[in-house]
Amino acid sequence: MATALKRILSFKEAPIVFLILVVALLCGVFVPNFLTAANLVNILSQSATVGIMAIGITLVIISGSGGIDLSAGSILGVSSIVMAMTIIPPELYRDTAAMLVLPNDYWVIFKALVFCMGVGMFCGFLNGAMVAWVGLPPFIATLAMMTAARGLAAYISAGIPTYGLPTSLVWVGQNSLWFVPVPVALMIALAVIVHIILTRTTYGMSLLAVGGNRETSRFCGMNVKGTLISVYVICGLFAAVGGVILSARSNQAHPDAGIGYELSAISAAVLGGTSMMGGSGGVLGAVLGAVFLSLIQNPINLLNIPVAYMKPIMGALIVIAVLLDQWRKKQSIGD
């Protein structure tokens, strides 16, 4: 029994899984309409954008020495605006009047996706360059990018949100493969891929080593700066993918989209057992953390609880999750 517990506790995802089960169980008992397939699918879909961003942010946090990306939400905003403006003809873009009906021009959509992700990766590259080459603290570098990218989104869109995207793009946000909504499928697929990269490739090993001890990594001949830049580029890319999902789901591109999402994504990463000190963490936990965040939002809406109660509860739950994680670490040190 004790060894079984120890084995469970050796997984860093254990606390978040435990929390999800507890909250789900409580909700299942006390909240009517909670345990329906449709509601559970809802919770998962709502977590997809933050979940995908959290994957990228987890890698940044793992890279250590205060690694963090505060600009992910803004990168989401600017890349989704770039996507929408590539698709929507300029004369229609200025027309805020109607829900736009746009043709499914696949070449245009492909171009839009490439631009969108390109912008995300470019912003990420600038973050990485500021951190690795200029030597700015990640907090400062990405704070600057957060302001700059949001300003850019407002500037190129003239502050105008737009409704209506081509149906084939909206499919990505709203449809399902069998029972699994496309955003959720995408989130799971990306999480699994990045998990394999992190745990099974030489790149993943160098990332963990660089995050765990930058000096040692230099002595081992690893490309420390290249690794640092790469995680910010990946984080920017995933923010852009999050932007595609968010826009497709809400059938809209909004220059203010994703405000505050970086904090949710950081919370999700921490909830999932990633240490802010760097050098350890996992993307599966981060995705579970994102699911947990939309899970606790759900009964608040279902039970019609005033919003004022929600934020303190969320704060408390994050603290509980981190305490659980620390307790887990202490338990598994035993041997």
Binding site: M205, L208, A209, G212, N213, E215, T216, S217, F219, C220, M222, G279, S280
Partner: peptide, 16 residues
């Protein structure tokens, strides 16, 4: 500070 990555396993440190 320069020799090990403390959070990684013996095997991983051995193969850096």
């Amino acid at each position: 500070r320069q020799g090990i990555v403390p959070l990684m396993s013996v095997a991983e440190n051995m193969c850096h």
